[in-house]
């Protein structure tokens, strides 16, 4: 690592400035999440408008129905992953080493969500639901796919956090920022599930 470029990044002991109310890593992540919320809001409102103005009803006739019941299992898995990460955070603040088990559990549940969804997509594609088959398919893959990419990206960061934690060099603010982002990814899913699947 090159030496720290900014005192805010790695605080010098005699830095006279008061500690910020929100660590920079968390604040930066929150600003990023603001954009993400607005992006999902844009997609959801576009979806709602298109659904409301569909002439032939929704979902369109002749198009496969979405597996709402199976996805409920997946929804619960993702929510549990959020709970596990919350638990990991609580343990991390008490004793850093204890966070390992819930952290791995959160990762495993998140990975399960991605794999489950992949299997679901393969089945739907086989049944004839694609981005060009209808507006229904287009919006399904757009919204659920965008969320899926977020889950995969967040899992990559979580893998890095797991590795750093194992090496004993996980900064508290990094872990906190990662948790905030995961809560966003988990928190937005029930909304998407309710709107798109049900």
């Amino acid at each position: 690592m090159s030496p720290p470029r900014s005192t805010a990044d790695l605080r010098v002991i005699d830095d006279p400035r008061p500690l910020p109310a929100v660590p920079s890593a968390v604040l930066g992540t929150l600003v990023f999440i603001l954009t993400e919320i607005m992006m999902f809001a844009g997609m959801i409102s576009a979806f709602q408008i298109t659904r409301a103005s569909a002439v032939l009803g929704w979902p369109p006739p002749g198009q496969p129905r979405l597996p709402a019941d199976e996805t409920l299992i997946n929804t619960i898995a993702l929510l549990l992953s959020g709970v596990a990460l919350f638990w990991a955070g609580r343990r991390f603040e008490r004793d850093r080493r204890e966070a390992r088990a819930p952290l791995l559990l959160a990762f495993a549940l998140g990975a399960f969500f991605v794999v489950f969804q992949g299997v679901e997509w393969v089945a739907l594609l086989r049944d004839g639901l694609s981005m060009t088959s209808s507006q229904h398919g287009a919006f399904f893959y757009l919204i659920v796919g965008t969320h899926g990419i977020h889950v995969i990206g967040a899992l990559c960061v979580m893998a890095m956090v797991v590795q750093r934690h194992q090496q004993g060099r996980l900064a508290s603010s990094t872990f906190q920022a990662m948790r905030v982002f995961w809560y966003f990814v988990v928190g937005v899913w029930p909304l998407l599930y309710t709107l798109v699947y049900l």
């Binding site: 600003v31 990023f32 603001l34 954009t35 993400e36 919320i37 607005m38 992006m39 999902f40 809001a41 844009g42 997609m43 409102s45 576009a46």
Partner: peptide
């Protein structure tokens, strides 16, 4: 910018 660009990224 951060608050308004999201919908256009979606678009």
């Amino acid at each position: 910018f951060m608050a308004s660009v999201g919908p256009l990224i979606a678009g």
